[in-house]
Simulated scan of single mutants.
Amino acid sequence: MSRSQTLRQNTINQFIDCINNNILSFPLPSISILAEAFNVSRTTIRAVLNYLCQIGILLFDNNQYHLAREPTQKDKIACIFEKRSIQDKKVETYFYHLINSKKLLPGDHFNEIQLAKEINVSPIVVREFLLRFLHYGLIDNVKKGEWELATFDKNYAEKLYEFRSVLEIFALKAFLAQSDNHINWIKARELLQRHKNLQQNIQDEYKLFSTLDRDFHELILSCKENRFFLQSFDLISVIFHFHYQWDSSDLKERNSIAVSEHIAILTAILQKNEPLAIAALCRHLNTAKRSMQESIGRALAIKNR
């Protein structure tokens, strides 16, 4: 199968998904606008529209494309997308990459159809991923298929800190209550050593901390085997790192402090000293909150100049 044919079939399937999920409005906008939205050529869009007219989904009348009937899954061409779990992971990885590489910043607009084309996944996978963040105020739905990365104030950081504290302190207590032969104790020792290794090379490798930070908090939350814990942490982690990207001038210092705080928490955990571990965790979460608030303050100051 040629590359152009593969692209055309993917776009047909994406178009059908968008119709079924009310992402597109009728009559359809111009071919140029559709080509830009789907990130394909106008030639490809014309071929897609012609095909959908041929099978009776669209009707071309008075120089406009109208919806003739609701499409079904049988209308889709043999799907060439990867299985859903792989698509979910690709969307997550790509979205986080856009944030961490500063290709998406607070206030930026982006289109879910374009994202789907860039990642080569179904638009529905992208939409369902984005809806997770909508409930936490990380993104805003500007219009059908169009999104904006939200901007936050310091009060948002305070509320997020309160929720994160309740979540992680509860998980930490559950972690300490695990049996002595649980594999998480081995993971905690290995994670402590990784932190010590990074601490020795923090001047040169401080940017590696984000991965270590994710592993640290995931380990604590994983003990409950509660999908809601991990989903909540996923969103919180993105929000915190999202704001740190606004100003990287003190990133090395922040990460150095965070590594030391993680080491203190892990050491107390391995000693099974609950009061000490909780106190160390609270200090760490408070530091993260303060850093986020300072980052927000600097960003707002620059914006208001």
Rank of each mutant, 00 (worst) to 15 (best):
M1A: 13
R3A: 11
S4L: 07
R8M: 04
Q14D: 03
F15V: 02
I16Q: 00
C18S: 08
F26N: 13
L28I: 15
I33M: 11
L34E: 07
L34D: 05
F38T: 06
S41H: 09
T44Y: 04
R46M: 11
A47G: 04
V48A: 04
Q54H: 03
L58Y: 06
L59S: 10
D61F: 03
N63W: 04
Q64S: 02
A68W: 06
A68T: 08
A68I: 04
P71L: 11
P71H: 09
R84P: 01
K90W: 01
V91T: 00
E92F: 00
T93A: 00
Y96W: 02
H97R: 00
I99W: 00
K102Q: 01
G107M: 07
H109T: 10
H109F: 11
E112F: 11
I113E: 02
I119D: 10
I119M: 09
I124H: 01
F129K: 08
R132W: 09
H135G: 14
H135L: 12
Y136T: 11
N141P: 03
K143C: 00
G145T: 01
G145D: 01
E146M: 03
F152K: 07
K154W: 04
N155F: 05
A157Y: 00
A157H: 00
A157T: 00
E158W: 05
R164E: 08
S165I: 05
I169R: 08
F175K: 13
Q178L: 11
S179F: 15
H182K: 12
L192E: 15
L192N: 14
R194S: 15
N197V: 06
L198W: 09
Q200K: 13
S210T: 07
S210K: 10
T211N: 12
I220G: 09
C223D: 13
E225T: 05
R227G: 07
F229Y: 06
V238W: 01
I239M: 03
I239Q: 01
I239N: 01
H243V: 14
S249T: 14
K252G: 15
K252R: 15
E253Y: 12
R254W: 09
N255R: 13
N255G: 15
I257H: 03
H262S: 07
A264M: 10
L270M: 12
K272P: 13
E274M: 15
P275S: 13
P275C: 14
L276E: 09
L276S: 08
A279S: 13
L281N: 06
L285N: 13
T287A: 14
A288Y: 07
R290F: 09
Q293E: 14
E294N: 12
I296Y: 03
R298G: 12
A299H: 09
